[in-house]
Design a binder for these strands. Structure first.
Lengths: 108, 108
DNA sequence: TATATGTGCAACTTTTTGGTTTCGCAATTT
DNA sequence: AAATTGCGAAACCAAAAAGTTGCACATATA
């Protein structure tokens, strides 16, 4: 089992679950109502999300409320950081190029 | 075949390839040297990356150079945006809380 | 022209994944 | 106490994915 955050967000249903519980915690049954699968399938997704600490659970009687561990999402942001640097550099280079063209125009 | 960007970055070897060709374009053979797999396996990964437009190729004679399509990486950033909003809000709330505590202290 | 090299592609195998069904347990409700 | 409800876990299945091997094709080199 690989069970890292990138593998966790690879599945569209899991991304749906993440979006759903991002703002309020929900029970497996309530979550499953929003998808075209069984409660058990959602339960499996929740297990995977829990295993890589993207989701936390809180038991209330026989109900278990799941919610997003937003801090963990920052890991993706952190990974993206190196590429953000690249595209920002490219953007600045383009910016400089445009500025150069503009100044050349004005010199005419 | 799902073949979206999230599925593409789920595989650790593919993330390795992305990191490798982010700054300079490389041939499949050169890329494969950096991993513990065969050239053909890398080729398959490159195909997947190409199919979801994360990577572009440029043919030079019999060699094919692969490089990262950095623009496509912004899609992940875009998806992350909604969650970034959440953690920034949380951060501000914490900030406000700390400020409140501080001012209460000063009132003593 | 013959040989070597860089490559993609197809067939095949193994592993992983997502889903379903069935079950048992604990907490409610009747 | 009995029935119902909410849940996770295990066993099983089908589909997908990752890797391997063998090939064909084009380009380069001898």
């Amino acid at each position: 089992m690989r069970r890292d955050i990138f593998q966790a967000i690879a599945d569209p249903t899991r991304r749906g679950i993440i979006a759903l519980i991002a703002l309020q915690s929900m029970t497996p049954n309530a979550i499953a109502e929003n998808f075209n699968t069984t409660r058990q399938a959602v339960s499996k997704h929740l297990r995977i999300l829990t295993e890589c600490e993207l989701v936390k659970q809180e038991q209330h009687g026989r109900e278990i409320y799941y919610s997003l561990e937003i801090e963990k999402m920052k890991e993706i942001d952190k990974w993206l950081e190196q590429y953000r640097k690249i595209w920002e550099t490219r953007f600045n280079q383009l910016d400089n190029l445009l500025a150069t063209i503009k100044s050349q125009k004005n010199e005419k």
